[in-house]
């Protein structure tokens, strides 16, 4: 089998640039997606069904349509509408965050609903408002339960970030495609990118496990 490591070595600077951008996309989208997801999850759980409806529609739309299509619509539709031209960084982070938020919202909702009703009752019986009870009693416990599911979502997000290569965002997958196009050899670029994604997701997994252990001993 001829596997040309020399070609990968030639292309290493681009893989490095791409990897850094992939990390950037992933970290930014994980942070924004989680914050947004928490808010949407809270919105979904509002007792007033009419107020909760838009949040449910949001989750349905973003979970029910392909991320690839969302990326295209945001890149070619929404972003030019707001800033007058396309911008891969804004489009990429926006699409990944908005998509991830829908999943985080559901994880969050499941985490809260898995808690015993008695926790909320105990907090309320002590005179806490609904918001105080959520803030000090419910969310901290739900968050702990959410970590495995959130970790899974983060890993999916890192891999999904490769989809922004379709709008020519110069991240890891983009350079993998570009290298394939330059040398007309598929395995070197694709296995290299796969290997780098694997390392990124393993690091993410490692960090989450560490966090999980720390929270468990608290």
């Amino acid at each position: 089998m001829d596997f040309r490591f020399d070609l990968i070595a030639n292309y290493a600077p681009f893989f490095l640039k791409g990897t850094l951008l992939t990390i950037g996309f992933s970290v930014a989208s994980i942070i924004l997606g989680t914050i947004l997801g928490l808010l949407i999850g809270l919105g979904e759980m509002m007792r007033n069904k009419k107020l909760a409806a838009p949040f449910r529609v949001y989750v349905t739309l973003f979970r029910g349509t392909p991320l690839l299509v969302q990326i295209m619509i945001i890149h070619f539709g929404f972003v030019p509408l707001f800033i007058g031209e396309t911008n891969v960084y804004i489009s990429g982070i926006a699409a990944l965050s908005l998509n991830s938020a829908a999943y985080v919202a559901e994880i969050f909702r499941a985490g809260i609903q898995s808690l015993d009703r008695g926790q909320m009752e105990a907090a309320r019986s002590l005179g806490m408002t609904h918001v105080q009870a959520m803030q000090h009693v419910i969310i901290p416990q739900a968050f702990k339960r959410m970590i495995p599911a959130l970790g899974n979502e983060f890993i999916v997000l890192i891999k999904d970030s490769s989809l922004v290569s379709v709008i020519a965002a110069p991240e890891l997958m983009y350079w993998g495609n570009a290298m394939q196009g330059q040398y007309y050899r598929p395995w070197e670029p694709y296995l290299t990118t796969a290997f780098i994604y694997l390392i990124l997701t393993m690091v993410c997994d490692f960090l989450l496990r560490k966090l999980e252990r720390r929270l468990a001993t608290e």
């Binding site: 681009f14 295209m72 890149h75 070619f76 030019p80 007058g84 031209e85 396309t86 911008n87 891969v88 290569s165 379709v166 709008i167 020519a168 110069p170 983009y174 495609n177 570009a178 196009g181 330059q182």
Partner: peptide, 24 residues
Amino acid sequence: GKNSPHIKKFKNNNLAIMELLNGG
């Protein structure tokens, strides 16, 4: 220049032309 940041490489020409139409 090869791998110039001024070259945007798309999956197909339709996307490349859409990028042109949207000012990218």
